[in-house]
Every structure is written in C-alpha cells, then in structure tokens.
Amino acid sequence: MKQPKLVLVEGLPGYGKSTTAQLVYEILTEMNVSAQLVLEGNLDHPADYDGVACLTKQNMMSCRESAAGIRGKY
C-alpha cells in the first residue's frame, strides 16, 4: 500500500504559492497520481485561514494514522 504524501507550498503574499500549487497538482494528475488541491480561503481547507492550525479530532487522528512509521525514513 502506498503511503500518502503531503506537499505544502509556503511563501510571502504574491510570490506565486497558488500558481505553484496548481502546477504541482496538474503535474501529479497528468502522471495519474491521485491528488487533492486545497487552496487558502477554501472553506474545506484543513487549516484555519487566520494562520492558526486547526484540525478536528477526526482529521488529526487520520493524519497521525497516515504518518505512522514514516519518521526517520527520509
């Protein structure tokens, strides 16, 4: 079973984060890699748009289960 990966694009306002994220998403989908694009301001975004990480307990447990065993592999 393949492990899910998370790609975060961070940077200053106006430096092309959304454009870069969109490009990465398009490349992945063209390669037939299942991907999800979540942009800041999207109401389904897993983090609060005020800059404070905010996950539901279910989201947090899902993240922890997905990441189990990957520490130290890279």
Rank of each mutant, 00 (worst) to 15 (best):
R71E: 12
C63D: 07
R64I: 14
Y74E: 06
T20R: 05
G69Q: 05
Q36N: 12
D44R: 12
E10H: 09
E30W: 04
A53Q: 11
V33P: 02
E65I: 08
L37V: 02
A35F: 02
D50Q: 13
A53L: 15
E10S: 14
Q22R: 13
Q36L: 12
G14N: 04
L55A: 09
Y15W: 07
M1W: 01
M31Y: 08
G72P: 04
Y74P: 02
G69W: 06
N32K: 10
A53G: 12
L37N: 01
E30C: 01
K57E: 15
T56D: 04
G41Q: 03
E10C: 14
A67D: 12
A53M: 12
G51V: 11
D48M: 09
Q22E: 15
L28G: 01
G11E: 04
M60L: 15
A21P: 01
Q3F: 03
A68L: 09
V52G: 01
G14W: 05
G14H: 02
L55E: 10
M60E: 13
G16M: 07
N32F: 05
E40Y: 07
D50H: 13
Q36P: 01
N59E: 15
N42V: 03
L37P: 00
A47K: 06
L28M: 09
Y49G: 06
R64C: 13
T20C: 10
D44S: 14
A35C: 02
E40C: 08
G69C: 08
V9F: 02
G51T: 11
L12A: 14
V9L: 02
L8K: 03
V38W: 13
V52K: 11
S18V: 05
L23W: 07
D44H: 12
A35W: 03
D48N: 15
A21Y: 04
Q58S: 13
K73S: 10
L43R: 13
E40S: 13
Y49A: 08
G11Y: 04
A21S: 11
L55C: 09
